[in-house]
Simulated assay, not measured.
Amino acid sequence: MFTQLIIKNFRCFDMLELDNLKLITLIGGRNNTGKSAILESLFLAVGYKNPNIFLALAAGRNGNGILQPTPQRIWNPLFYMFEKNAQFDLMLLRDTGIASTLTMRKISDESVDLDVNTDTVTNILKQGYNPSSLGSYFFSLQYEYTLDGQKSIGKFSFEDKKIKYISLSVPKKEAQLPIVKAIFYKSIYIPDNTTIAEWISRLILDGEKDLILYVLTSFDSRIKDITTIVENAVPYVYVILHDGQKMPITYMGDGINKILQLLLCILTTPKGVVLIDELENGFHYSTYAKVLRVLYQTALQKQCQLFITTHNVDILRESANVMRKLEQLDSVCYQRIDFSQGKRHAYSFSGEELESALDIQLEVR
């Protein structure tokens, strides 16, 4: 579990420190304070070795879904003020006392052949950029990952519009530590139907079917069973109703599909991290307590750390209530991000402090 996150020169943050992180960490604040960027920093800090993570982060910020695969479009937005800084640092502290720092910086890439990217170069020139500075659009991203004093080095570069990962050194300590798996649940990152079916099949074999059914039936009493059916070599999830009818789970409504997806994310990520952007979306307010109890109870059981952004005071209130009833109020915290005088700050509330602030109707969103 991570207990501290320090962000330097990443996205909208020149410097941000989040302390006293808990198994359930709620993140709030006004629009444009950087809540989603915090989730992105965690996603990158844990999964930085996967070249596709950069494309995923860029896609998550690109509303029309069209990506121009160049360092300028994919990597520059990761840096504070885009080109103002050429290095960012993401520092994490674990509850075991082990600290890690991911440093990424821009370096020139002499191996890039601009002829391979003729279409991209043409598009850049059409936007009015000076041809003499064209080389600055094709740079590599070098990383240094320091774990408990030991450093590994590598880099990412573009080759024919694809990102290539090259590891230059790996410390022994990094290889010995268990890998922390992270899942980012956001509108653009929702697991597809095939992935959901594969997860369901595996969890049924692992003996988790009763829990999945309990959750589904608590949201829709018509459901009797759940199964996967292969059609044209593609697996799909079906629910079986009490009248014997089989129905694709996708026909059961957005709310029940979302709670199933979130539950599966946690069940398949024991001792890992699940990042949830704006949890309240897709749920009626009357279901908040039920949704949160399912997610928090499962996270506690699997020791899966949740980072959840929200604008909703009812989510905060029900989170405190649920964790109080579970006798786990010390396992939740709230990080309120504030933006004033050009700076962003994080104010940390323990579970007790959040509960007290809500009781006196203090504005904490």
Results as ranks from 00 to 15, higher is better:
residue 357 A to S: 14
residue 300 L to Q: 11
residue 351 G to N: 07
residue 355 E to M: 06
residue 358 L to A: 13
residue 260 L to A: 08
residue 306 L to S: 06
residue 316 L to P: 05
residue 249 I to K: 03
residue 304 C to N: 06
residue 274 V to F: 01
residue 320 A to P: 05
residue 269 T to C: 08
residue 273 V to H: 01
residue 325 K to V: 10
residue 293 R to M: 11
residue 334 Y to H: 09
residue 312 N to P: 00
residue 267 L to E: 07
residue 256 I to R: 02
residue 251 Y to R: 13
residue 312 N to Y: 00
residue 289 A to L: 07
residue 302 K to Y: 12
residue 326 L to V: 08
residue 311 H to Q: 11
residue 247 M to R: 12
residue 294 V to R: 06
residue 337 I to S: 01
residue 282 G to A: 08
residue 273 V to S: 04
residue 324 R to L: 13
residue 299 A to E: 06
residue 288 Y to P: 00
residue 271 K to N: 12
residue 344 R to D: 09
residue 299 A to W: 04
residue 334 Y to P: 00
residue 248 P to Q: 14
residue 287 T to G: 09
residue 322 V to M: 05
residue 251 Y to F: 14
residue 266 I to Y: 00
residue 252 M to Y: 04
residue 273 V to G: 02
residue 309 T to V: 07
residue 274 V to N: 01
residue 323 M to H: 07
residue 343 K to T: 13
residue 354 L to Y: 07
residue 297 Q to F: 03
residue 277 D to A: 11
residue 316 L to R: 06
residue 321 N to K: 03
residue 288 Y to I: 07
residue 286 S to H: 13
residue 269 T to D: 10
residue 312 N to T: 09
residue 266 I to L: 04
residue 331 S to L: 10
residue 261 Q to D: 13
residue 263 L to S: 08
residue 271 K to S: 10
residue 303 Q to T: 08
residue 262 L to Y: 02
residue 267 L to I: 10
residue 247 M to V: 15
residue 319 S to R: 03
residue 318 E to V: 03
residue 259 I to S: 06
residue 294 V to A: 14
residue 260 L to H: 07
residue 289 A to M: 11
residue 353 E to V: 05
residue 298 T to F: 05
residue 288 Y to Q: 06
residue 256 I to V: 10
residue 282 G to L: 03
residue 321 N to I: 04
residue 291 V to W: 09
residue 254 D to Q: 11
residue 261 Q to C: 12
residue 329 L to K: 01
residue 286 S to F: 11
residue 347 Y to S: 01
residue 348 S to G: 15
residue 257 N to Y: 02
residue 316 L to D: 02
residue 272 G to N: 03
residue 250 T to W: 06
residue 355 E to K: 03
residue 332 V to K: 02
residue 272 G to E: 04
residue 278 E to P: 10
residue 264 L to F: 08
residue 281 N to D: 14
residue 246 K to G: 09
residue 269 T to K: 01
residue 333 C to A: 15
residue 264 L to E: 04
residue 314 D to N: 01
residue 294 V to G: 06
residue 275 L to K: 02
residue 260 L to W: 06
residue 344 R to V: 09
residue 284 H to L: 15
residue 309 T to C: 07
residue 356 S to T: 12
residue 256 I to A: 03
residue 311 H to F: 04
residue 294 V to L: 09
residue 248 P to R: 14
residue 358 L to D: 13
residue 354 L to E: 10
residue 284 H to I: 12
residue 266 I to R: 00
residue 286 S to K: 13
residue 255 G to Q: 08
residue 307 F to S: 04
residue 261 Q to L: 10
residue 259 I to W: 07
residue 353 E to T: 07
residue 297 Q to E: 15
residue 335 Q to Y: 02
residue 296 Y to H: 10
residue 345 H to E: 13
residue 299 A to T: 05
residue 333 C to D: 13
residue 299 A to F: 05
residue 276 I to Q: 05
residue 347 Y to V: 02
residue 319 S to H: 03
residue 312 N to H: 06
residue 271 K to P: 01
residue 297 Q to H: 08
residue 248 P to N: 14
residue 314 D to W: 00
residue 268 T to A: 02
residue 285 Y to Q: 11
residue 254 D to E: 15
residue 254 D to L: 06
residue 331 S to N: 11
residue 313 V to L: 10
